[in-house]
Design a protein around this nucleic acid. Sequence first.
DNA 1: ACTGTAATTGAAACTCATTCTCATTTAGAA
DNA 2: TTCTAAATGAGAATGAGTTTCAATTACAGT
Lengths: 146, 146
Amino acid sequence: MDKTLLEKFKDTLHTNGMKCTPARLLIFKEVYSSSEHFDADEIYFRMRREKKAVSRATVYRTLDLLVENGFVSRVNVGASQVHFENTLAQEHHEHLVCTQCGKIIEFSDKVIEKQQNLICEEHDFFPTKHNLIIFGLCDKCRKRNN
Amino acid sequence: MDKTLLEKFKDTLHTNGMKCTPARLLIFKEVYSSSEHFDADEIYFRMRREKKAVSRATVYRTLDLLVENGFVSRVNVGASQVHFENTLAQEHHEHLVCTQCGKIIEFSDKVIEKQQNLICEEHDFFPTKHNLIIFGLCDKCRKRNN
DNA sequence: ACTGTAATTGAAACTCATTCTCATTTAGAA
DNA sequence: TTCTAAATGAGAATGAGTTTCAATTACAGT
Ligand SMILES: [Mn+2]
Ligand SMILES: [Mn+2]
Ligand SMILES: [Zn+2]
Ligand SMILES: [Zn+2]
């Protein structure tokens, strides 16, 4: 976890008149401790296990805060809970989700992005965000199935 | 609502050993009474208003049944409830969703579909389903905003 | 048409993720 | 150090959807 990033987070808190609390810093660090996708409860339980417990409410509240400030993004992986990922190294990308083992493959594609813009123009639509998710079977699961 | 379609539904029920009940037929007709996207509770309340009340549980159960048999598909429009649409006239398509007025524009695009397949091949991934949703502002809302 | 029975239904209880409430604590400005 | 608005934690509340189960019903077999 990049040191300057933590500073950037602290700056964000400061310039928005929000308090720089232990709970927020711990959650921030937890979120940036891996580059996997995660949900709120995963963070909650990882933190308790590591004896850095904060309340569920605070986890949810802080994740919202991180999303609003671009440190984390919400990811749709077809699950019943909202999933997240930190925005450390990754540029904008989409996901392939294996419906058998849950493996997630990330990709980004210029052709698709460009085509989306064309479509929006055609419909006089101003795009702000998009979400492409492809469900299927990863190589291993396909082989395993036979 | 096409007559042969109702027959097709009845056939499906029959060949799957399921009973052809009034509740199921009413829900089926309600679902095919418009081509808008809808959620379970919309169906539930429309039916009560029209004095064709069935229980919420039956609405949910029947919608699942309709999805499993291809009469209805689940649609992600970024809402907190699951949305559906009947599969009457539409081929497979994606959605532009106006985040201001809720307007939904449908589109389908060969280039994107083809590109998705290429990407899946590259990752040795066997796609079964996908979902593309573009959020933004429709023409009217953009103008209205200024 | 009548029966028997397994499928279906409705009502209400339940689940589970997330949000809200509110009394208590605390960061940080003065 | 003091003061106060912001933040926190515990648990209650919410809301979509699912499950349970006793009562009803479609319909296959007679
Ligand atoms: Mn990702
Ligand atoms: Mn549609
Ligand atoms: Zn897999
Ligand atoms: Zn609009």
